[in-house]
Design a protein around this nucleic acid. Structure first.
Lengths: 217, 217
DNA sequence: AAGAAACTGGGTGTTTTAACGGTATTTTTT
DNA sequence: AAAAAATACCGTTAAAACACCCAGTTTCTT
């Protein structure tokens, strides 16, 4: 029997959802809290629940904060976020913070049951909506890949190193020092890259480096 | 009966996989190609397959290119990528290009069947490995979130708009024009943000904006 | 209605970047 | 061993970015 904890400040919502959970074979609600703070105080390392369902909008300690706390303290503790917001930012943030799934409050009960079962059996629950948001957030902008790929091959190792330094809150002078080069030399690298990459400012170089994963954020 | 097309240059691999597909109730292989080019030539708009399984490493037209082509020409055509590479870059790229799933060549046959069934019934197949890569790619690096989170709340909407403009190969003057502001005003925004974000150059602002997804690459 | 907060505009310097137009050395390829 | 890249270096000038000062207006909160 999977033991479920629920966190939601809307008592009616929480209790009705709890009854749904209790009606799923193999699941039982063992605890309810009004917000993340209450939950963290209650949590006993020697007697963890198997699954946590949490609302995102809550007073005192909201879902995002609670998720971060759980991931920091009990990374193996599975939890599912439940929210009214079908908002990409919110979803992505929750997944980043370790959520095993993200359910909208207007989901069908069948999907809800599926989510709980999937999380316990496979470790995650992702439906089509969620998937679209995830892939959407991966996209950002899809640049002229083949064009940039060709240019990439024309960039030397030292230039790549330089590009990485560019993605830093340092001036060219400081970069020169860090690379053990004359300031003039880095000037030359910059000018060369401007030409190769068809940009006119350091920002352009930085964006290129990040897009092509020469440097990471 | 779902009609499946298979693209893979390794004939043995392809044919043995085809027999696995044919053994799944409800699935039948109707076509096999050695590479993406062959497949695109064969494809008949009036008689599309229900599902395409494609290898990524192929001569002439590889999986990534084929995926892009499919997404451009038949966005509703479902396809699953199959590859030896458990490589995040490759996986993410495939998902971006519209793949409904990504299978490793050393998957269990059970998982393989699950993938086909999930894609046809739910539209996607995501297993734990895939999920980790996706979430991993969402993360990049996990900075001092709580620190930056606090700062984020102190940034106004206009400042955020400005931050987005900063992530552009434009000068401040051009940004001012684009935002219908005086150059002095954007100077002020910049100086304010320097102070709030504890950085000393536009690069610092750009990196902050990208890290916190105020702007996208 | 008062005050706070956010948004908008300005002046005056100093420092940094960028554009132009080069040369010299080392490493790799042929 | 010669040719070709890649790497390292330099001077000048104009433009842009940055630092540090200021104040008026709109918008939201109380």
């Amino acid at each position: 029997m999977f033991r479920v904890a629920m966190i939601d400040d809307h008592i009616l919502m929480r209790q009705s959802l709890a009854s749904v959970v209790n009606a799923i074979p193999g699941f039982t609600v063992i605890y309810e809290a009004n917000n993340g703070m209450e939950f963290t105080k209650w949590l006993d390392p020697h007697n963890l629940p198997d699954l946590v369902l949490m609302d995102i909008n809550m007073p005192i300690m909201n879902g995002h904060e609670t998720a971060q706390w759980i991931t920091a303290h009990y990374p193996k503790l599975k939890f599912i976020a439940i929210s009214m917001l079908n908002d990409e930012r919110s979803i992505i943030k929750m997944l980043r913070n370790g959520a095993r799934g993200y359910l909208l409050k207007d989901s069908e009960i069948l999907d809800f049951r599926q989510a709980l079962q999937d999380v316990m059996s496979k470790g995650i629950y992702i439906n089509t909506i969620l998937y679209k948001h995830i892939v959407g957030s991966l996209q950002g902008s899809q640049p002229n890949e083949q064009v940039e790929q060709a240019i990439l091959n024309e960039i030397g190792v030292r230039e790549k190193e330089f590009l990485r330094w560019l993605c830093t809150d340092k001036s060219y002078k400081e970069i020169a020092a860090a690379m053990y080069l004359s300031p003039r030399t880095v000037d030359g690298y910059r000018d060369m890259l401007f030409e190769k990459l068809k940009v006119a400012s350091r920002i352009g170089l930085v964006l290129f480096a990040l897009r092509n994963e020469i440097a990471k954020i």
